[in-house]
Design a protein around this nucleic acid. Structure first.
Lengths: 220, 220
DNA sequence: AATTAATAACTGACTAGTCAGTCATTAATT
DNA sequence: AATTAATGACTGACTAGTCAGTTATTAATT
């Protein structure tokens, strides 16, 4: 009668790949590809290293798999939901930006951004894939909505390419920050942490910069 | 008569540390800490690995040195130059943002940002040092100038903390991007590269969002 | 229902290769 | 001649990847 469940080995062929991928993703984000030990990945997934090699051919294959599984499904799901919204550009734009944050930026998937940034030099083809399959598609969505707003005369006629990047970068940077610096600054006295009013100020600033006729702010 | 200079070994005690640090910085930025080989650092600096160990105690000491040398002097130099400017907040703000870009973001030093992001998980104390010694000081400068503008009634009275981050993040992200994704997207067809009008649109957007009374844009 | 045989998921000790760090030797400088 | 900067072969610790063996599970037999 010695810990019947927890110590006995389990056979769960279906669940292993996803569990291993999740463990690998979190460790790759924490430590980077090269500094991550496969023994540690296996341990975090609750299996031995040998099991890892039943499901993935090599460390690099594991890395590629983690990148390729993450990001794409979420984008496609989000894109599908967006279709049914109207054609109010400001509403759509807020929806996309908030949507990216809640579905990606604020979740574990946000760490993929940091990971890609860190490993692009070592895995250019993986970075290119992620760029094509995820980043470009989100940016294209943004550009379409911004162009819609410009055509309708609601948004100012600025250069759409840099504009979409300027919309996105504060969110992306925040997500990257949370997955790198944030965890090592715990306990550091408050200033220069990300405050709650970040999003309010973000939307205020960009929409005032973007709209032809911004709403008046309340008199003081 | 076989290449007298290039093959003969040189003794240049003074120049070695800086040359080794520069070689290490560029490789750490390209590949990350763990994936960088000390033989490669030494080769790039034109010496052997043994020489590296004459000037640095360990790989980690080399890393710390590279981070601690880079960034701080530039900030202090810039801060000193800024004193002699007037007290026009908009001009000062443009000067700081442009100054950061030309002195840091667009140079090799910009890569330190990417490096810190990538390695913060493995070297939290180094990340904390860089945060305190560089990031916080630039942000404090920004906040001081923004507060000055708000007090003078030139800038809108928004929350200064997120505002300074929102000013800075598009530049930081651009710098990080150039040191990670950019190099692996060469030859990728034009869209989603960073265009020349990025800065124009950046300043346009943030100052229209920031100023109480933005300049009128030219009639169409 | 109980026993036995067959399957394959899982394990971890092992191998082969890599790389941070050392040190005996070489050669430039004083 | 003495000093010391520079070298690169060497070592030992570490880890990606392997594989012979173990055990949970399922199927067949009694």
């Amino acid at each position: 009668m010695t810990e019947p469940e927890s110590t006995r080995r389990q056979r769960r062929k279906e669940a292993r790949p996803a569990e291993l991928a999740a463990a690998a993703l979190s460790l790759f984000i924490e430590k980077g590809f090269a500094a991550t030990r496969l023994d540690e990945v296996a341990a975090r997934a609750g299996v031995s290293k040998g099991t890892l090699y039943l499901y993935f051919d090599s460390k690099e294959a594991l890395f590629k798999s983690v990148i390729e599984e993450g990001g794409v499904p979420i984008f496609e799901e989000f894109e599908a939901r967006l279709e049914i919204l109207g054609d109010d550009p400001e509403r759509l734009l807020r929806e996309i930006l908030r949507g990216w944050w809640t579905k990606v930026g604020a979740t574990d998937l946000g760490g993929i951004g940091k990971l890609i940034i860190a490993e692009a030099g070592n895995f250019p083809e993986v970075a290119r894939y992620h760029h094509e399959a995820v980043i470009v598609r989100w940016m294209t969505l943004l550009r379409r909505v911004i162009t819609l707003g410009v055509d309708k005369g609601i948004f100012r006629s600025l250069d759409v390419e840099p504009l979409s990047q300027l919309m996105f970068f504060p969110l992306l940077m925040l997500s990257v920050w949370k997955n790198s610096m944030a965890s090592c600054l715990v306990g550091c006295e408050a200033p220069h942490q990300i405050s709650d009013s970040y999003f309010d100020t973000y939307f205020d600033l960009i929409f005032r910069g973007l709209l032809v006729a911004p709403r008046q702010e309340p008199k003081e």
